[in-house]
């Protein structure tokens, strides 16, 4: 394993820490790496001495959690005054972002369902058209009615062709709805962790 690979794993593992803390840890190991190289140690040996990147990162995370939990009580007191402002921000966020987003997701879902059903509606309409003019043909006869039946059958056929296409569109609409949900969830979780 090269140092870059080690550092990549280390950095990824530290992603939950604030940027300043992460940069500090990365700087510490980069400095040691440089000094060890200058002292004639090989890259592979340095990486071996550093040990598992995840373990090294976990030690830093544990130490950071420990130090922040000690300061926890004072920070809780400091942030207690912000609770009302945070609640107001949450309400505004829900009203101006959450509600419109929910409306968009709902509309997309309804559009998807309607699209899916419209394919069957075209088939049904075509069949109804055929039945209606078949009855007309039986009762009164004539080439005009036969032509109308043909049109009805064609409509039903077009409907049958449209069903898979609409089904495909519906599937993607629902996937889009799901992705919007997941992305929103990630954004909210990210903000919580940052806080």
């Amino acid at each position: 394993m090269t140092y870059r690979q080690w550092e990549k794993t280390f950095k990824k593992r530290l992603s939950r820490l604030p940027k300043e803390e992460r940069e500090r840890a990365l700087g510490y190991y980069a400095e040691l790496y440089g000094d060890k190289l200058d002292a004639g140690t090989s890259e592979s040996e340095i990486v071996r001495e550093f040990g598992d990147a995840k373990d090294a990162a976990d030690k830093i995370i544990a130490e950071y959690s420990e130090s922040t939990s000690v300061q926890g009580k004072t920070s809780v007191q400091r942030t207690a005054g912000d609770t009302a402002a945070r609640a107001a921000a949450a309400v505004l966020l829900f009203l101006f972002v959450g509600l419109p987003l929910l409306a968009v997701i709902f509309c997309l879902a309804v559009a998807g369902a309607a699209l899916f059903l419209s394919g069957f509606a075209v088939i049904l309409a075509g069949v109804a058209y055929v039945v209606y003019f078949l009855v007309q043909l039986c009762m009164f006869g004539g080439a005009g009615y036969a032509a109308q039946i043909g049109i009805g059958l064609a409509a039903a056929g077009v409907g049958a062709l449209l069903v898979p296409l609409f089904l495909y569109c519906t599937k993607w609409l629902f996937i889009a709805c799901g992705k919007i949900f997941v992305l929103t969830g990630r954004v909210v979780r990210g903000k919580r962790e940052a806080n």
Partner: peptide, 27 residues
């Protein structure tokens, strides 16, 4: 002194590694 040298100076007397020194210096 600096990280690498501190480890080199302390290591003969008590076991210390790179990952151990970081929290010590920070603390």
């Amino acid at each position: 002194s600096y990280g690498y040298k501190i480890i080199a100076d302390v290591a003969p007397y008590i076991e210390i590694s790179e990952s151990t020194l970081y929290p010590i210096l920070k603390r």
